[in-house]
Structure formats: structure tokens, C-alpha cells
Design a protein around this nucleic acid. Structure first.
Lengths: 241, 241
DNA sequence: GCGAGTTTGTTCTCGCGGTCACAAACTCCG
DNA sequence: CGGAGTTTGTGACCGCGAGAACAAACTCGC
């Protein structure tokens, strides 16, 4: 597998559209893209894998390997052209054109997401905000009118939406996901602390704030235990300065 | 590292406090804990690995393996006691007592985080909100007064804070992180789309909304390409009747 | 008390992903 | 034009984690 040495003697394009890009690499491509954008803003036209890797916070060997899955877009002895590589990564991710996105659940988090400029600047366009609670409906958030949840299917069909964001309480998350899938959405970003059940073919990514904190707490506990132990072993200076 | 005089021929006795729990397992423990809490709320006293695995959205073999790293807290032929297992996981993660947390950057996202009930209900207590911008200072958000960023060190020392949340723009993130580290914080949850440089011993976890969306977009692009291809290959039912 | 049934804990195997190290390829300079 | 220096692309190796399968241990019914 791997390697475009896989027969398929199609000479037209350099890149084989059937390459399997490892999931771990896919997760890093956006990071590289952001680093490249940052370089471009500083008018840097080209960079080495070492520079880009530092900017992205990864190992340079890993970066080169990741990029090699896309094709050979660098020049040995020189490095990578920032604009060219940016475009290639954007094309691979599929953010050369904007993706319409809807947000369901316009509470505190939903409003923050709607106002988040990072979405619009990176290939996404929020086309609608929905909420089931009547008090929210009709209000304007981030320049968009909050519409009733029952309009979901209509909006998805009209705007060709394939990506949905769920920022409702955990108890409502599954219902919202079901409705999204029924409406034709096939990628869901879920902020609700709940496990979503979706049919095959639908992708779900979960962002769970309290889980992240708990992971930190675990390591923090270990650090504290480690420190106690060191103290037990004697000979550390006191904590109070 | 760590795990100093392990091995010490202690058989399958009580739990060795120096076990190394795999990172992948650590990331799932909070999910199990949440599933257990949900079971407890429905007055379910015990459950099998299969039931718990379903509730947590994982494979039952993986769940059993994960739990085995903590010790043998189940009973063969019976299952797990919900309350007992909950406590053991909470103890392992270190959330049997509350962790004080500060949030720096009280914009849209910071306010949403401050109001997020999931923090307080899962072992975390927001003790202070900080913002460098004068207009925010003095305002009350989620029952807490927003204090100037310059109070950081004082607050961290007074409240024994070891976990900090960064929800400032990307350009300010590194400065905030530096100040946090200098003040004694050793775990950072970063919402800013920037790579943070921190000294060894400090843990950083990143939550990046636009990266998550871009990963979805990648798979969505592939799905679209796949669909086109199926059509190209013909031999599927015609679209037009 | 004992066998049948059930469920945990663990062992084994396999594949993905991370890192190292090096050959290939390009530039620069004399 | 050729050699030295630089940087990419990739092959090899290794360790972690996922999943399947099985032995150990507990309960229940008779």
C-alpha cells in the first residue's frame, strides 16, 4: 500500500486521488495551514521543514512525512513555497471554497461560536442559527436571526449544508443529531457532553470541555504526588518564597 | 522515568500507586465517569462492562482493559458496582476534591466558559475571571467580578490555583501562558488558535474549534468525491427517472 | 455441594504512528 | 562545470493501542 507506486498509470495529475491519508496526519494539516498563513502574513515566501515544524509545534521529520502524503510539493535544498504549499493543503482538506455551517443551540456557547471569527476566516460560513426555545427565536446573534429548530430540514436543503454544530444541553443532543442526520447533514461537531449515536457514513467529532479539564487534573494529581514524594525523600526547598 | 523501585515483586496484591496508566486510557476515564454518573442518576446500582461500554460509546473489551489499569474493581459473573467504580475513577483522575480554575480572556468564549455548568459539576470551581481590557474589568460574569490581568499572580498564589484556561485572541496567548507559568500554574487549557511554548513540567491541552471543523471538512470532501465517483462509474440506478 | 451460566481480567497478535537516519536532488560558488 | 553544502522525501525500526479470544472467578439453582 502507500506510495503512489500503486500502478494506476494515470499520468495526468501528479497526485493520486485515492491516497489514504492517515487520520493523525489529517488532524495536523490544519495546524500546518495555520502556521503557513501566519508566515504569509509576515511576508515570508518560503520556509524549510524545520521552520514550519517549529511554527506548528511538531517534529520536522513528522512534518515532512505528513506533507509527503499529499505529494512532493517541496524543493530539496530549498524548502517549501509558502503560498503554493498553503494552497495544496487547503485543497487537500477541501477548504478552497467555503462550507456552509449551521449551529443548533444558541445558549452561551452557541453565541460564542456564532461570534467566533475563526470559522469564517478559515473556510466556513455560518448560514443559520437555530434554537428550540421560543425566547431565543427572532433575536439577532452575530448578524443572523435565530430561527426555530423546526426549520432545520428546510434550511439544510436550501443551503446545501453538510456540517452541523451542536451546542445544546446533553439531554437534547441525540434528538438534535437525529434531526440533523434526517435532514441530510453528514458531519457533526458536538459540544454537548453526550455520546451520539449516528448511522454509518456520518462523522462526529466531539469537543468536551470538562473532559479536557479532567485529563489535566489527572496529570496535575500525579505531579502533586510526585512532589510529595520528592519531599518525602527529603531535600527540597520550601514552597513559600 | 518515574516508576522508581517498582517491580519489587509485589504480586497481584493491592493497587500499586506507581502504575503507568496509558494516555489513551486517561482520556477515556472521564467518559466512563460521566456514563456512570448517568447510570447512578437513573438509580442503577450495578452494570456489566457491556452496558457501561455502550453508554460510553466504546468497545467492551477496551473498557475492561482500561479499568484493569486502575485495579480489579469488578466482580466476575456480576459486573461493576456503579457507586464504587465511580469513586475509584474519580479518585484516580483526582477529582474527589474540587480544583480551583481561573479563566483569562472574558470575551464571548470566556463568558460562555464561565457560565458553563459542566465545570462546577465535575470537580472544578472557577475562582476568578481575568481580562486585560479595561472595559471588561469590574463587570460581573457568572457571579464573578472580572479582575485585571495584572492580578494573576496574586490570585494564583492566594487560591492555590494550578489550572488555567486561556480564551484570549491568538496574538496574546503566549504572553498569557508565560504569565501563568510564572505565577505557578502548571496545567493550561488553551482555546486560542496558537502553539504555546511552555517549559517542561507544564501540561497544555489545546481545544481548537476551526481545526475540528477542518477535519470534518476533509472527510466531507472525500465523501463528496466518493459519491461523484459512484456516479461516474455508472451502473447505479439513474438519478432521473 | 456442585455444575451450569455469566462476566471479568489478561494474554496475544496486529496495525498505526512516531522517530531516526540516509539517499536523492537542488543551489551556490569558485 | 564540478564539488560542497543544504534540505526534502522515504525506508526501517520500534512502541503504543485496539481488538479478539480465553482462562479465572463469581452466582444461581437444585
Amino acid at each position: 500500500m502507500t506510495a503512489r507506486s500503486t500502478n494506476t498509470g494515470e499520468g495526468s495529475g501528479a497526485q493520486d486521488p485515492h491516497r489514504e491519508i492517515p487520520e493523525a496526519t489529517v488532524a495536523r494539516l490544519p495546524v500546518y495551514l495555520r502556521a503557513l498563513t501566519s508566515l504569509a502574513e509576515r511576508n515570508i515566501a518560503s520556509c524549510s521543514s524545520e521552520e514550519l515544524a517549529t511554527a506548528a509545534g511538531v517534529n520536522s521529520a513528522k512534518l515532512r512525512k505528513d506533507l509527503s502524503y499529499l505529494g512532493s510539493y517541496g524543493t530539496r535544498g530549498v524548502g517549501y513555497d509558502v503560498d503554493y504549499l498553503s494552497y495544496q493543503i487547503a485543497r487537500e482538506i477541501g477548504v478552497t471554497h467555503d462550507w456552509p455551517v449551521i449551529i443548533v443551540g444558541i445558549g452561551n456557547l452557541g453565541q460564542a461560536l456564532a461570534n467566533f471569527s475563526g470559522f469564517s476566516s478559515r473556510g466556513f460560513r455560518t448560514v443559520a442559527l437555530l434554537d428550540a426555545a421560543a425566547p431565543m427565536q427572532g433575536r439577532t446573534v452575530a448578524g443572523l436571526e435565530v430561527r426555530p429548530f423546526s426549520d432545520l430540514a428546510e434550511i439544510v436543503a436550501a443551503e446545501q449544508v453538510s456540517i452541523g454544530v451542536i451546542s445544546v444541553p446533553a439531554t437534547a443532543a441525540q434528538d438534535v443529531a437525529d434531526a440533523m442526520v434526517a435532514a441530510g447533514i453528514s458531519s457533526i461537531l458536538n459540544f454537548a457532553p453526550a455520546v451520539l449515536n449516528v448511522p454509518p457514513g456520518v462523522d462526529v467529532r466531539k469537543v468536551d470541555l470538562s473532559i479536557e479539564l479532567q485529563i489535566l487534573a489527572y496529570h496535575e494529581s500525579r505531579k502533586a504526588a510526585e512532589a510529595d514524594e520528592t519531599v518525602d525523600n527529603g531535600s527540597e526547598e520550601g514552597i513559600t518564597a
